[in-house]
Design a protein around this nucleic acid. Structure first.
Lengths: 159, 159
DNA sequence: TCCGAACGGTCTCCAATATAGACCAGGTCT
DNA sequence: AGACCTGGTCTATATTGGAGACCGTTCGGA
């Protein structure tokens, strides 16, 4: 099956069907050409690990995981303040996904006002540990990349 | 400045202005409350490292960097086949961003048909080295996360 | 001789997604 | 009494990404 065919097949596997395909594929190892004998491959469009990868490397999800790793358990509003710029819609959606995938625990305390606390589960801690070096590297290298971009833009504007 | 004020200020700093702000902020370390004394902070919405982080952790950019790390220099069409599902629009856009930021080198060979080769620059190699463990981890843990999701959905559908 | 495929994109349309802000109930504080 | 807080949901609108057509030149196969 070619990549283009996979692409088209991927489009046909609509959202509602995608998860069923994902679950079946994990069980059977049937991910098209790229996944063989139970090995998953994030480069293969239809491989369930690709869908999972796409879900986890969402910008907001990564920032949330890193924030929970750095600051410990937090409430919804604390996360919203700590992760600058995140909308409530995206915070809610990302937390829901992380909870659903077993990376984050959500605990509701029946109080008024409502108090909901989010904390990392072991899987989430593992992933956060891998993400943190990327965050630190970005902070360290931003100066160089901005300089590279200025140079690139200067050269290409002159062209 | 509160997060909400930063959020509004961020909206006002439109795309056309965002880069100027980014460049000035890198120089001056002026990133609002969260960035102090030359320290960059990806959690701060207006910090230039945040914009850089958002740009680099794009799903397609990460897959491209990892593909170049794994397979060496590649042509546009090779990347398109190797990174299953990427549209030409996104492949072009992501490569342009990576080249512009100094992570990837683009070499055009004046031939027919056109031959363009993309390869990692040192900065890109650094980042790819940090991304690769995340890809491997996702492949390793996909089964567990799919199982967690099934359990979550079963419990919440019953509710 | 003609047609299809390949290359590396750009462009346009439209579907999908994200942002911004209003809204909700109940409690606390000024 | 009014403002603010909590943790969201909902809606309108702006933004983004996917799909496919299009471009010129060359090469190979029918």
């Amino acid at each position: 099956m070619t990549t283009q065919e996979q692409t088209r097949a991927g489009s046909e596997a609509a959202q509602g069907v995608a998860q069923e395909a994902m679950e079946a594929a994990v069980t059977d190892g049937a991910c098209g050409d790229a996944c063989v004998e139970q090995a998953l491959d994030i480069f293969a469009q239809l491989c369930p690990s690709r869908a999972m990868f796409a879900e986890l490397v969402d910008k907001w999800s990564m920032l949330i995981l890193m924030s929970l790793a750095a600051c410990g358990p937090q409430r919804f509003s604390e996360l919203q303040r700590g992760v600058g710029g995140v909308s409530r819609k995206m915070l809610t959606q990302s937390l829901r996904t992380l909870e659903r995938d077993g990376l984050v625990r959500r605990t509701v305390y029946p109080e008024t006002p409502p108090r909901v606390v989010y904390e990392l589960l072991p899987l989430g801690g593992e992933l956060a540990a891998l993400l943190e070096p990327i965050g630190r590297w970005t902070e360290r290298r931003t100066g160089q990349m901005v300089a590279a971009r200025d140079e690139f833009d200067r050269v290409h504007d002159e062209a």
